[in-house]
Design a protein around this nucleic acid. Structure first.
Length: 769
DNA sequence: TATTACGTATTTTTT
DNA sequence: ATACGTAATA
């Protein structure tokens, strides 16, 4: 096992003489850590200590001196996972762990490699990495330029198509001909080709390109590949079941070096098929990597026996799987509780009550989670929790750096570093307004396209002529002069935070926001301040941009507050709670109708894996529920229990009907009433927007009701999200944004529901951040 | 340039 | 039913 390492080195590498980090591992885990040569697949079931094995293995490699930290390649899918792995590995390794330079996501490692060999990949080293939003904007331009109706053929669809091809490592010339004609009567492939050309002119990459260009770099430059073969003695891959074809090829190329590749994953937890993950990668591992060993981790340390039995039984219904048998030495615990209810409101009520009694038995809110299939299901729980005063946190939602003001600021910074970044140029050339309207921009774009040069270059040329006149010319001149000035300062060594502040001031961006008296503007200014704060953590503009474009830390800094968590099943992967609620187990909701419609049995199996992930999040208690009537897209529908419900083992489930449902024939009996969630709540809730430190969370907290003294002022808007009223400096919106505010009288707010033609008095408001 | 009207989609989320 | 983006209109 260790015969190619001198004994003396082995001894020296182990301070204290023993491999203490191996203590407490079970035999399979230990084997997974110590099987170092050749390809290895570690099939790690839910709760079997996967991360521990991964980090211990890394520590083992380094502490036994088999490789230096910078000679190991460790790949994860998310930045969060990368961070966790780094932290835990460094703990085990000690000061040596600092050198883990090649630990990161597929994309961040690819970007690192591409920056080093940019020219060989056909890029300049300052290339920009564009995100989904830019990608869609680019697609839109291309569609418009090709005179295709963007309503029939949406930019989003094209972007999705291109993404799909890139996930499968298909460049325009490799797309199979039967797929090439999917878009706009046969123009799909051409548009893809134009898209790639545009990117190259912009000196930009999208996320898929990071992988694709790296693969091509390795294929076309054997010497470069050899260099990395030499460097990477050991390769570790986390969540292998989520790899797409491009990532598989990427790994194959690199693994051809030493062949020491260890992939860890669980085929039963592959839930990202819709974004290109191929379960087949993990299913075929033994064929793909010759001489591969497979180790199964089946001892579960997380859940009780009943919970584990339910999950295991359910997942056996899937055909395409490698198969594992999870077991535990722990308690049987309580059976999984299965409950049928009348409707979504009753479901939310019951779960709310359960949480309250859990809390009054001395447990904590933060030990509970509600896991839903789709985010629209969250609303019912939010409403109920607000009413009961249960503190909760919604995990997911829009992220800080996807906000418009942050993206605008970033566009300015991008232009400083990479002037050919047309997407950034277009975004801010008239933001704030400089008189450069749609027609001027169109003119510039037309010339730029004809010339194959960037907007920045073209603008400079056009300004010498009289092609653009009047306010547009003045605006463009000022914009260009500012850019030149900032670029000079940047090269002159001004600190990037100071420069950033100047840019935002001198461009007029902050003035624009200050002039805007709407409540959102204040938040935006705050956000920009936080952006600059965050910049201070980096030592250069380049470092910061790379981070935001790629490695932006989107996770929270430890939730210290005692709050119930509401999240989607997808977002729940990798997490666990003592008490887990799984509501909405109805056919067409879960499993999702669309998933089955679009992907048939494959889709169904992925939904079942999602159910498996859900159940296995629970440590002590698991509550599954379904209803007979549910409002979906505003319509009441009779729904039937999910097929997954019937796949659970009776022995481990306690089924309770809260409604008589189950004894009755059919579900067609209508549920009278509908909801009137606005009335008589007598409570107020506060909406606080996610800030930099809590990028991915939306927090709504309950606090004292607002005092309305008649001085309130209407904010009318056709946009229901913005309709509301103003009370001094404070702005309130109707909870969850229904209807149009019509009248305010004392504590009574009258709202007109236009479509329904009814007026309602409501007393529940959400204060704007 | 700001407001209003209209059309469309509406699972999941990362990089 | 509703949110969002875009086109049409004042």
């Amino acid at each position: 096992m260790s015969d190619n390492v001198p004994l003396s080195q082995l001894a020296m590498a182990r301070p204290g003489g023993g491999a203490d980090y191996l203590d407490g591992l079970n035999p399979e885990q230990k084997q997974a850590v110590e099987t170092l040569e050749g390809p290895l697949l570690v099939l790690a079931g839910a709760g079997t200590g996967k991360t521990r094995v991964l980090t211990t293995r890394l520590a083992h490699i380094i502490r036994t001196g088999r490789a230096k930290p910078w000679q190991t390649l460790c790949v994860t899918f998310t930045n969060k996972a990368a961070r966790e792995m780094r932290d835990r590995a460094q703990n085990l390794i000690g000061p040596d762990g600092e050198g883990l330079r090649w630990l990161g996501t597929f994309h961040s490692i690819s970007a690192q490699i591409l920056r080093r060999h940019a020219e060989l990949a056909g890029l300049k080293p300052t290339f920009t990495i564009i995100d989904t939003d830019d990608q869609i904007r680019l697609c839109k331009q291309i569609i418009e330029a090709e005179n295709i109706d963007p309503k029939r053929w949406t930019p989003r669809y094209l972007a999705g198509l291109i993404d799909g091809w890139k996930n499968r490592a298909l460049l325009p010339d490799k797309v199979p001909s039967d797929e090439a004609y999917q878009f706009a009567d046969g123009k799909g492939i051409r548009l893809y080709d134009i898209y790639q050309r545009r990117l190259s002119i912009l000196n930009a990459c999208d996320f898929g390109d990071l992988l694709l260009l790296t693969i091509r770099l390795f294929q076309d430059n054997r010497d470069v590949l050899a260099e990395y073969h030499d460097r990477f003695r050991y390769i570790l891959v986390d969540e292998y079941q989520d790899t797409n074809i491009a990532q598989y090829l990427w790994l194959r190329l690199l693994a051809r070096g030493t062949g020491n590749i260890c992939c860890v994953g669980d085929d039963d937890q592959s839930i990202y098929g819709w974004r290109g993950a191929e379960v087949t990668n993990i299913l075929k591992f033994e064929q793909d990597f010759e001489g591969a060993d497979v180790i199964r981790l089946e001892r579960n340390y997380r859940s009780t026996g009943h919970i584990l039995a339910c999950a295991s039984q359910l997942i056996t219904e899937n055909k395409g799987r490698l198969g594992k048998t999870l077991w535990t030495e722990g308690d049987e615990g309580e059976p999984v509780k299965l409950r049928g209810l009348w409707d979504g409101e009753a479901e939310a009520r019951l779960i709310g009550d359960d949480i309250e009694s859990w809390r009054s038995s001395g447990r904590r809110y933060e030990d509970c989670a509600v896991l839903v299939r789709a985010s629209w299901q969250m609303r019912a729980f939010e409403e109920r929790f607000i009413m009961l005063g249960i503190p909760y946190r919604v995990i997911g939602g829009p992220r800080f750096f996807e906000r418009a003001e942050i993206r605008d600021a970033m566009a300015y910074f991008r232009l400083i570093r990479s002037e050919d970044d047309d997407l950034a140029f277009e975004r801010v050339v008239n933001q704030p307004k400089r008189g450069v309207g749609a027609s001027s921009l169109q003119k510039l774009q037309q010339i730029a396209r004809g010339d194959g040069r960037s907007l920045h270059t073209i603008t400079r040329m056009v300004l010498q002529t009289d092609e653009i006149k009047g306010p547009a010319k003045r605006g463009l001149t000022s914009f260009m002069n500012h850019l030149d000035m900032w670029r000079d300062k940047h090269h002159g060594g001004m600190s990037h935070t100071e420069l950033a502040e100047q840019i935002l001031d001198e461009s007029g961006y902050t003035d624009m926001l200050r002039a805007d008296r709407s409540p959102q503007a204040a938040t935006r200014l705050e956000n920009l301040k936080e952006l600059i704060n965050a910049m201070g953590e980096f030592d250069s503009l380049a470092g910061f941009l790379e981070h935001v474009q790629l490695v932006m830390d989107t996770s929270r800094d430890g939730g210290s507050e005692d709050e119930v968590q509401i999240l989607t099943l997808h977002a729940a992967k990798g997490l666990e709670w003592p008490m887990v609620f799984l509501p909405g187990w109805e056919e067409e909701v879960f499993p999702s109708k669309r998933s089955i419609d679009e992907n048939g049995n494959k889709g169904l199996e992925e939904e079942r894996r999602l159910a498996y992930v859900g159940i296995t999040r629970a440590r002590e208690r698991c509550y599954i529920s379904f209803v007979a009537n549910r409002q979906i897209y505003g319509r009441w529908q009779s729904v039937i229990p999910s097929r997954f419900v019937d796949e659970l083992p009776h022995k481990h489930v306690e089924a309770i009907s809260e409604t008589g449902y189950g004894q009755r024939q059919g579900f067609g009996e209508s549920f009278g009433g509908g909801s009137s969630s606005f009335e008589d709540l007598g409570e107020k809730s506060t909406y606080s927007s996610p800030g930099w430190k809590r990028m991915r969370e939306t927090t709504r907290k309950r606090s004292a009701p607002p005092v309305i003294d008649g001085k309130a002022e209407l904010i009318a808007s056709t946009d229901p999200g913005r309709a509301g009223f103003k009370l001094g400096q404070r702005v309130f919106h109707i909870k969850f944004g229904y209807g149009k505010v019509e009248q305010i009288e004392g504590a009574k707010l009258t709202v007109e529901f236009e479509k329904a033609g009814t007026k309602k008095v409501i007393a529940t408001f959400v204060e704007a951040a």
